[in-house]
């Protein structure tokens, strides 16, 4: 029981190899083992979405996945979406439209929003609210979060059209 196992996970394009017990929750692997602290621990009960990462093209709450399940997978966190010198359009829109107050939910919000806009590049306000329903903001600033996602969607469509 509880012997450490060898795991290989690609995080933000970098292959990470380590030993861990299968029961380790992926959020702890990311934050404490790999020092990738963008995904946050909010509720730790699959409700709040602060720990959202993208795994093989799905938005996943990293508090509700064992590291063993993620073995061999491709994980993207907020760090892999953009950084201070190359902000993703969503990060820029959240900054411009005051899409955050305390900022605790923001990495999960933006990570979820990248996947949401991939699936629905031109969403209505209602679709944004439904597609982002797995992420909770306790500053209750949803209005500006929706506005930020709308602005990023418009910006990303303009860039796509310019490229075509």
């Amino acid at each position: 029981m509880s012997k450490k196992q060898h795991y290989t996970i690609t995080v933000n394009g970098k292959e990470e190899e380590f030993l861990a017990e299968p029961r380790e929750l992926l959020i702890y692997t990311l934050r404490e083992r790999l020092n990738i602290t963008g995904p946050h621990i909010g509720c730790e009960t699959s409700h709040c979405g602060a720990c959202t990462v993208t795994i093989d093209g799905k938005s996943v709450k990293a508090c509700t996945m064992f590291v063993a399940q993620a073995d061999g997978k491709d994980v993207t966190t907020i760090e892999g979406i953009g950084g201070p010198d190359n902000l993703h359009p969503l990060q820029n829109a959240f900054k411009e439209h005051h899409g955050l107050q305390c900022g605790y939910c923001t990495p999960g919000m933006i990570t979820r929003a990248t996947k949401f806009l991939e699936e629905n590049p031109n969403p209505t306000e209602e679709e944004i609210r439904f597609g982002m329903a797995g992420n909770i903001c306790r500053c209750t600033g949803y209005q500006n979060i929706v506005k930020s996602i709308q602005a990023a969607a418009a910006e990303m469509s303009a860039v796509r059209e310019a490229a075509e």
Binding site: S46, T52, K58, R112
Partner: peptide, 9 residues
């Protein structure tokens, strides 16, 4: 059922 993240899993 649940929310988007949970529905992927």
């Amino acid at each position: 059922i649940a929310d988007p993240q949970v529905r992927y899993m």
